[in-house]
Design a protein around this nucleic acid. Structure first.
Length: 285
DNA sequence: CCTCATTCCTGCGGGC
DNA sequence: TGCCCGCAGGAATGAG
């Protein structure tokens, strides 16, 4: 489940493998993988051929590769997307969607995506910041992120605090796993109304969000199975450090109470019933 | 503008 | 053994 730490792990791996290389040819093997490219798959391949990759950048869960044309290759891994660096002799992956060959005839870049929630697109003139990403808020690890602006915006939201954390236009990079982990660390239940948080409580929550993201990057991200891997196909190991996510019935590491699972937006939330008291008047979500 | 439900997709695992 | 169904879930989309 790629969230910010997993995408950052991929970014770092990609950066060393593709920066400075010139794309020779692009094969789109599944049209859905480039559905966010309005001009279509043939155009996608055509505008990338001959371009040199200048860098690999990230905002939240989005990646983009500035090109020497001034355009950018934008990517989102969705639920199951992988960007793999593979020797040309490696057999095609079952869910291989897009293949990039380079003029140096070195390792290929492959976009593999089982559930096809992810996708790639070329952003015209998007090298500095693709328009496709401009509606997304900065992530908490961005040097330009303004903590007090986030605290104020969070406290204006008339919704549950977990819903707010997952809203990428408020703060980007946080998904279901790290939202639950940050809320556990902060001792807040996700349905607590965001507009009822005190300023210090909102600051503390942001601190926990940032801290759990940094720690997860240090572990190479979280992986439950082979679906999330870095560019070399290796899994991260932050899942060993998760305190509540996916641990229904196991003792809370802080107080020993059994972790509970609750339905949330057609998925699940995990929390400690003792450390994270649910508000009486349940807000949506 | 804000909030929220729906939809996209495939593999896995539980239940019968 | 095999089928069905729920579940995993990020983000675009449209309704209200």
């Amino acid at each position: 489940m790629p969230e910010l730490p997993e995408v950052e792990t991929v970014r770092r791996g990609l950066s060393s493998w593709v920066t400075g290389r010139r794309i020779a040819t692009v094969d789109v093997l599944h049209p859905r993988a480039v559905r966010r490219h309005p001009a279509g798959e043939a155009d996608f391949a055509a505008v990338l051929a001959g371009r040199t990759v200048l860098d690999v950048l990230r905002r939240g869960k989005y990646l983009w590769l500035p090109l020497d044309s001034g355009d950018a290759l934008v990517g989102h891994l969705g639920m199951s997307g992988q960007l793999l660096v593979q020797p040309e002799t490696a057999a095609d992956e079952t869910h291989l969607r897009v293949r990039f060959r380079f003029t140096d005839e070195g390792p290929q870049l492959r976009f593999v995506d089982q559930r096809t929630f992810g996708g790639l697109a070329v952003s015209p003139g998007g090298a500095a910041l693709p328009g496709e990403i401009s509606h997304i808020a900065l992530d908490p690890l961005d040097p330009s992120f303004v903590d007090e602006a986030f605290v104020a915006a969070l406290r204006r939201r008339r919704t549950g605090v977990k819903r707010a954390l997952l809203d990428q236009t408020l703060v980007s990079g946080v998904g279901n796993i790290y939202a639950d982990e940050a809320l556990w660390r902060a001792g807040l239940h996700g349905t607590r109304p965001a507009d009822a948080l005190t300023r210090p409580a909102a600051r503390r929550l942001l601190g926990h969000v940032r801290q759990v993201l940094v720690e997860a990057i240090g572990s190479g991200g979280t992986s439950f199975d082979a679906l999330y891997v870095n560019v070399n196909g290796e899994s991260g190991y932050f899942d060993r450090s998760l305190n509540v996510y996916g641990r229904e019935g196991e003792p809370c590491p802080r107080c020993g109470a059994p972790i509970r699972r609750e339905p949330f937006m057609n998925r699940s939330s995990y929390s400690c019933p003792r450390c994270q008291v649910r508000p009486r008047a349940t807000t949506p979500g």
